[in-house]
Structures are given as structure tokens and as C-alpha cells.
């Protein structure tokens, strides 16, 4: 594997089990994302785009195959070791925002930094930087439960970026966004915020896919 590889997925097979049946998602997926590259994954609903993001983030395990993140095979590591790797190297924007509704925007942004063991002053500095970059300063002290879907998505995006990760995984990042917020998010992809970052994004929006360096098409596995 070249040292220029940020993500490498090799012959990955994923099957979900339930009610005594197996539901194959994909049988043999392989691809590589180079450092600093933006790879978009497109495909129909149910083809396994979210599953793929979960696997690369180490939130789920494949039945077969290997996944390397920054040269480390995360499929062979204990989960807590993968967690530590994730908090240092990866930022994840989930399809469903996965913020904690009872906490404020500020506290949600602070959370990954707490896990990194940063001091309160460092955390404040990082949060203030990110608030400006993602146009979310206006509602920093509001509880997440009171935010709109678009605001929620921008906070998720900011949270994924707060620890300045090398690799960003985005699961349908512009879904549920109004055209204006979508344009703001797409603009951020062209801007300096993501400069030098490796991006793996699933999408079914053309606007988003057009920004990518490469696009791969995931086909739906028929039952």
C-alpha cells in the first residue's frame, strides 16, 4: 500500500442478519482514497452508502475484507483502539445528525475536544474558530433540540471539523437542506476550510458529486 493512501478498502463484504435471514449489502467492494483527494460515492437508496461510511469510520465491522485508515488496518483492531484513532484522525458527518439534543450547540461542539483531553481554554478557542467558519455563531447557546434541520446539519458539520481531522467522512451531507444552506455547505467544500483534507462523501446530489475529484458508483445488490 502506498504511503499516499488515506483510506483503502479491500474486498469488503457486509451482510446484515435478522429474523434468521441474511441480507447482503455488498459482496466485494474495493477502492482507495489518496491523501487530499475528494471521493464521492453515489448509488441508489439501499445500496449500502451509509454502511460503507460506518465501516470506514470503524463504527461497524465487515464480514470479510480489510479497511485501512492512514495505513492502519482497523478491521483487526479492538474497538477502543479504533475509537482513539477515530477521534484523532477522522471527522464524521452522519446522515442523521447525531448531536445530543439536551446539550447546547457550544457543548456539542466541545464534546470531541473533551475526548481529546483538551483544556477548557483550548476548547473555547477551537469552538470560537469553528463557529465563525460555519456561520453558526448566532445560535451557539441554544439547545440543539430547538434547531432546524439545516442548522442541525451545519452544527454536525462543524463538530466533525472541530478537531481538525485529516480525513472527513460525510454521509449525504446536503440532504434535507434548503437550497440556500446547501449552497453554503457546497461553498465550504470549495473554500479553504477543507483544503488539504481527504474527503469521502456519499451523495445523490449532482451539485455535490461535481465537486469531487472522483466518483464511484455503488450498485444495489439484488435479493
Amino acid at each position: 500500500m502506498s504511503s499516499n493512501s488515506a483510506i483503502r478498502v479491500e474486498h469488503v463484504r457486509k451482510v446484515y442478519d435478522g429474523h434468521g435471514k441474511s441480507f447482503p449489502v455488498f459482496e466485494d467492494v474495493s477502492f482507495e482514497v489518496k491523501k487530499g483527494e475528494f471521493l464521492a460515492v453515489v448509488g441508489p437508496t439501499g445500496c449500502g452508502k451509509t454502511t460503507l461510511i460506518n465501516l470506514v469510520a470503524g463504527l461497524d465491522r465487515p464480514q470479510a475484507g480489510n479497511i485501512y485508515v492512514d495505513g492502519v488496518n482497523i478491521t483487526k483492531l479492538p474497538e477502543d483502539v479504533v475509537s482513539k484513532l477515530r477521534r484523532r484522525k477522522l471527522g464524521v458527518v452522519f446522515q442523521v445528525s447525531n448531536l445530543i439534543p439536551s446539550l447546547t450547540v457550544y457543548e456539542n461542539l466541545e464534546l470531541p475536544l473533551v475526548f481529546l483531553g483538551m483544556s477548557r481554554d483550548e476548547r473555547r478557542r477551537r469552538v470560537e474558530e469553528v463557529l465563525e467558519s460555519f456561520w453558526i455563531s448566532n445560535y451557539v447557546h441554544r439547545k440543539v433540540a430547538t434547531l432546524s434541520v439545516g442548522e442541525n446539519r451545519m452544527v454536525s458539520y462543524a463538530r466533525a471539523m472541530i478537531s481538525d481531522p485529516e480525513i472527513l467522512l460525510l454521509d449525504e451531507p446536503t440532504d434535507f437542506l434548503d437550497p440556500l444552506t446547501e449552497d453554503m455547505m457546497v461553498a465550504s467544500f470549495k473554500g479553504k476550510i477543507l483544503k488539504g483534507k481527504t474527503l469521502l462523501a456519499t451523495t445523490h446530489r449532482r451539485k455535490m458529486a461535481k465537486l469531487a475529484d472522483r466518483v464511484i458508483n455503488l450498485k444495489k445488490k439484488l435479493p
Partner: peptide, 13 residues
């Protein structure tokens, strides 16, 4: 839900 978020953000067990 909270447990899932903490794990996703890199907290150890």
C-alpha cells in the same frame, strides 16, 4: 443514544 454518540466521537468504554 448518548452512548452511541460518545462512541462515535471516539470515547472509550
Amino acid at each position: 443514544y448518548d452512548l452511541g454518540v460518545y462512541k462515535a466521537l471516539g470515547a472509550t468504554r
